[in-house]
Design a protein around this nucleic acid. Sequence first.
DNA 1: ACGAGCCGCTTCCCGATGGAGAGCAGGCAC
DNA 2: GTGCCTGCTCTCCATCGGGAAGCGGCTCGT
Lengths: 132, 132
Amino acid sequence: MPTMTAAQRRAADKAEYDAFLAQCPSRQLLDRISDKWVTLVLAALEDGPLRYSQLARTIAGVSQKMLTQTLRSLERDGLLTRTVTATVPVTVTYELTELGRSLQAVLTGLKGWAESHMDQVLSARSSYDAQP
Amino acid sequence: MPTMTAAQRRAADKAEYDAFLAQCPSRQLLDRISDKWVTLVLAALEDGPLRYSQLARTIAGVSQKMLTQTLRSLERDGLLTRTVTATVPVTVTYELTELGRSLQAVLTGLKGWAESHMDQVLSARSSYDAQP
DNA sequence: ACGAGCCGCTTCCCGATGGAGAGCAGGCAC
DNA sequence: GTGCCTGCTCTCCATCGGGAAGCGGCTCGT
C-alpha cells in the first residue's frame, strides 16, 4: 500500500475487503472462483474465444449443467462475454474480458502448479499412506 | 506406484500432466486445491504456524468437519505438517511445508484478486441483473 | 472422589449440490 | 412430414457439506 493521508486511510479501512470474514462480499467471490470448473474454463479460454461445444470437449468430464452454470456466473461477474451468432445451427461464443484475463493469469498459475508439483504431492501421499 | 518398469517409465515421461484430462492425477490435484477452504487455510498459515482453534477462529464460517478434513488432505499431500504437543490440554499445531509455501504464494494471489477486484465484479453484476 | 471443563476431533442426520440422461426450441435439409 | 444439429433446461438420484452432539484424555475445584 502506498502512502496516504489519515482521511484516505480511514476511507480505505472502511472499504477494505477481507476474505476471512464469512459475510464479506470478497469471501463470497473467493468461494465462486475457488472452483475447479472456473479454473478450467478460464484456462481453456486463454488462447482466444471458444464455442460451447469446444469448451465441453476441452474440459473432459464437465457436465452440461455445470458448464452452463459456470459460464453464466462468469458472465454475470463480468469475466467473460457470451455472443450468439445467428448461423445455422446457432453458434454461441465465449470470450474473456479484460477482467477475466486478469483472473485467468492467477488461475493459470494454479493449474501450472498442479501440473508441475504433481510428483512431489504423489510421493508425499505414498509416504503418508505408508504410516500405520 | 513406487516402482515402474522401463516401459512404464517411458509411457509416463511421454504422458505429460494435463489438467484438462479427467483421469490425469494433476486434474485430481487441481480439483482438491481449487477449494475455498484450502485457499483460506493456506492464507491463514502464511504468517507462521497456528493451532487448530486459531485456524477455526481466523477462517470464519468453517465447520469443524471441513476444517479437519481439509487439514488432513493437505497433510497427506505434504503441504503442511501436523504437530501434536503433549501439553494440557493437548495442543495441535499446523505449519506450512516448503511445498505448501509454494502453493500458498499462488493462492494468496487468488485471495488478493478477489479482494481487489470486488468492486468491478459487483458493478458487472448489477449491470447484468439490470437486463430483462 | 466426583463433576465440570477444555481441546481436537468423530459421528449422525438432513438439506443442498452436482452428475447422468432425457427433453426441447428452432433452424434447415431431405 | 421426419430427421438432425446446437445449446441449453429439466428431472431424477447419489454424494457432499453444515450443525449439533458425543468422546477421550487430562486437570482443576470442591
